[in-house]
């Protein structure tokens, strides 16, 4: 099974005085859903871009099963904040795109794409055009597209950030079902505290200037949902509320301390 390891990772944009990320150690293994939570400026998206291979770290090593990462690749699937689907292809074409790039024959890749569409509850949407979909449907196509290419792990950059609250909750539950069924490790970036606490098996809290990990938590609310408990029951559980308040307090603590530093 896939194991992603980040060792003493730092990142700095060319020309910038201070690094966006400093000294990050992380690992992501099987059956994990790692959520990186942090305010804007804490380098969450930079972290994902490093792992996806879109940018190179200024120091440290990133390895997947011991092999160093050098550039983007199909073994790390990415779901983007805004869907990033290709409007000149149908929904089916988009989902099958990764397999088409890999040279999989048409019949085989379309069968696989239809399976993935069924997995994200979009079985009847194969022939639709991208502009005929709602925001939530587009994100589901984005998720199906990433999964169809059979990546070893899934990276998600604030995938539900642009959705309304109701759709977001549905998408969170869908993600947990898909994660449970596909058994792929997931790294999800978010600034939504409730979302982070609900989804994460492992939660890392990032603080800005420079981006660094200030707390790591192991949680089981996502497992409980996957085991059949309802989302509403979990979210109204005192243990869930206590965790959420704890994380919230930590975020505010960080913000106060950075304000004091700048003052």
């Amino acid at each position: 099974m896939a194991l992603l390891e980040l060792q003493r990772i730092s990142a700095q944009y060319p020309g910038a005085a201070s690094p966006v990320l400093a000294d990050i150690d992380l690992s992501l293994g099987p059956r994990q859903l790692l959520v990186a939570l942090g305010p804007s400026g804490s380098g969450k998206t930079s972290l994902l871009n490093l792992i996806a291979g879109f940018v190179a770290p200024s120091a440290g090593h990133i390895t997947l099963d011991g092999v160093p990462i050098s550039g983007p690749g199909a073994e790390r699937g990415v779901v983007f904040q805004d869907d990033a689907l290709l409007p000149w292809q149908t929904v089916l074409g988009n989902v099958a795109f990764g397999l088409a790039l890999a040279g999989v024959p048409k019949a085989e890749r379309e069968a696989r794409a239809r399976e993935m569409l069924a997995l994200v509850d979009l079985a009847g949407f194969a022939e639709r055009r991208i502009w005929q979909l709602s925001g939530g449907q587009k994100q589901r196509v984005g998720l199906a597209r990433a999964l169809a290419a059979e990546p070893r792990l899934l990276l998600m950059d604030e995938p539900f950030g642009a959705l309304d609250a109701f759709t977001r909750e549905q998408m969170q539950e869908l993600l947990l079902r898909v994660w449970q069924r596909s058994a792929k490790p997931v790294l999800l970036i978010t600034h939504d505290i409730e979302e982070a606490v609900f989804l994460a098996t492992d939660l890392v809290l990032l603080a800005p200037d420079p981006g660094r990990i200030v707390e790591r938590l192991q949680l089981d609310f996502g497992h409980r949902y996957a085991a059949g408990e309802s989302a509403r029951a979990i979210k109204s559980d005192p243990a869930f509320i206590a965790t959420r308040e704890h994380v919230l307090a930590r975020v505010f603590e960080q913000r106060k301390s950075t304000r004091r530093e700048t003052a």
Partner: peptide, 15 residues
């Protein structure tokens, strides 16, 4: 060209 679309294709293994 939208850089997000390029990145999406790259992360799906596009040469």
């Amino acid at each position: 060209v939208d850089p997000v679309k390029l990145r999406a294709a790259q992360s799906l293994g596009a040469s």
